[in-house]
Design a protein around this nucleic acid. Structure first.
Lengths: 348, 348
DNA sequence: TTGAAAGCGTTACCAC
DNA sequence: GTGGTAACGCTTTCAA
């Protein structure tokens, strides 16, 4: 019996569309010979419905063969909600402290089955940005800094966010607040310098844009701690480069300062180097304290005194978010979460 | 007349839903007294259709009053594509160099009207993660590091990604590659040390997990540059803490090294401090070179020699992405983008 | 100039 | 056990 050419019938609805298009659950259903509903049941392990084992296998195989990946947008459109937690991506380089906090947070939220997404806000700020975030319909929004106003919070909530949490210096109407009061850092530094005999106290204020969020509260904290004492506070604007530091050091003796809070350890290192190059003794003539308790402070000589900062654990924040999402009508929590404690070393 | 319980009728289609639900374009249409189509035309400034000015105003006012924000998922579901560029969020603290690159990139992509999103991949890696990313149907995916395999690329492309770009040491089938060959950093460092007379050369290898991606190529680069010379290479595992550094310094003289490439400037600072504490002269007994050209290297004494690293401009990468998206069938570009040049200071 | 309607991919309700 | 079907919010063609 001779081989015959058989006409391969062109299926009216091709089982595997011409490669270029993205496979949908309908494609999986066709290939497995079942309905779309069945595919959904199998792939989501829906417990309310019993599907025979052979069917399950066929569906899984079809999905694998097509490289099927469910469409998150369609899913959350249908469900009416998502499990996306949105944060704006940081716009300034972020230190190891905050990096680790962020990692922890992402891990913890991931374990609670949330998807964390950092939104690359290009240029837009605060309440305008909130509109862009709201388009993604996140179930929760975490906002570091102080850009977001009550308007922004309202927009986000109106568009379905069940929790808005700010991480920063203040509270915003309608949002939960993790208060990170950087004034406490300034207060700790100032109290320490004062206790060590400092009376004419300088405060380095970085000129780099974006750092005001931290530098201003730190400065205010110093002022606050020294109010009513005989100490004076001198603001010292400083750019993060050697020339600026050298210039500042050059007029150091004319400033007559006996102590300085250098914003953080990196600026402290910059300043101490410039002071040493100019022959100003630390801590003899001027005591220097930094902040953030970075490794580099331990490596300097004299060893750098610093303000150690304690951030909340990512797990705690993740649980707060989860609680807030589960119970959106609960009153906003506001919690003070920034711990500041002086680590006295040799520079003060 | 006694109070009676009245059954409040459930309105079949409330004109303005009871505040709790999210306003849709249908709500805007109702309030403005127009159809949903008109709302869409007005809010998207559709030029193909002329809408009378009074109508436009009514629509805008209604949208504003309701706090309407369009639903990105619904939109991209309908459109069949989005303008989301997805990157995995970094899992290790990222230096100022890379931070700035990321900022630039986000800004540049934003100007090209893309939305950059960093996906907080919790624990999952490589090709598994690719599935999760694919659910968001991004138009492009940028992957730093070397976690992604050809499988992952295939999954992403099958689910509609028009461009996959890896930023890392190697190329992956089907993906564009921005080759950041950290071996070049090691080669530059080694060549410099050798030229300065180093023959027994140590290479610090951080023990911190996640840094192997960089440390291994840097080590290999050193080995490669010194192959065929009379120099020897000694691998020096080192954790980023003072005790580990002190231990290493303690056995330094027994190692008999006359030069060391310390992975980067921070490890170099750690090591130099420990060496100095043990009385090992730098560069007299041992030359030290770091990498990354951080500010702190300039502040050390002796001033730290380092390998300056040049990353591609964010604008360039953004344009590559845009080109790739516009022309998905073009063959993958592979471009070498990491420049490494020695900055000789006083430590070598 | 505006409105009606289809359809994007998914899931959940209700019949079979 | 399984399959049809409606609905989520939006854009866009076609018709009025």
């Amino acid at each position: 019996m001779p081989y015959v050419m058989v006409q391969i019938p062109r299926s009216p609805a091709p089982a595997s569309p011409s490669g270029s298009s993205v496979p949908t659950s309908a494609d999986v259903a066709r290939l497995a010979g079942v309905s779309r509903a069945t595919v959904s049941y199998v792939l989501n392990n829906t417990s309310a419905v019993r599907i025979s084992e052979p069917t399950r296998r066929r569906v899984h195989e079809a999905a694998k063969e097509l490289g099927y990946v469910p469409h998150a947008a369609a899913r959350s459109l249908r469900a009416g909600h998502s499990r996306m937690v949105l944060m704006p991506a940081p716009t300034i380089p972020v230190g190891p402290l905050y990096s680790q906090f962020l990692s922890e947070l992402q891990g913890a939220l991931g374990r609670l089955d949330y998807t964390v997404v950092q939104y690359g806000t290009a240029g837009v700020h605060g309440d305008e940005a909130a509109r862009a975030w709201a388009e993604l319909r996140p179930v929760a929004v975490l906002v570091p800094g102080s850009g977001l106003g009550p308007q922004g919070v309202a927009v986000l909530k109106r568009s379905g966010a069940r929790a808005v949490v700010t991480l920063g210096p203040g509270t915003v109407d309608g949002a939960h607040a993790l208060l990170m009061d950087h004034a406490a850092v300034g207060r700790a530094a100032a109290a320490h310098l004062y206790a060590r005999g400092g009376r004419r106290i300088g405060v380095v204020v970085p000129e780099e844009p974006g750092l005001e969020v931290f530098s201003r509260p730190r400065l205010h904290g110093v002022r606050h701690a020294l109010r009513g004492t005989d100490a004076t506070v001198t603001e010292l604007p400083l750019a993060y480069d050697e020339e600026a530091a050298a210039r500042l050091a050059g007029r150091w003796r004319s400033l007559g300062l006996d102590a300085v809070f250098a914003y953080n350890d990196e600026y402290a290192m910059l300043l101490m180097r410039a002071l040493k190059d100019d022959g100003v003794r630390v801590p003899g003539e001027t005591a220097v304290i930094g902040a953030d308790d970075l490794m580099l402070g331990r490596l300097l000589r004299p060893r750098l005194s610093t303000v150690h900062i304690e951030l909340p654990s990512g797990r705690d924040l993740a649980e707060l978010v989860d609680r807030a999402v589960r119970n959106p009508t609960a009153p906003p929590e506001r919690r003070e979460v920034l711990g500041a404690s002086v680590v006295a070393r040799d520079s003060t």
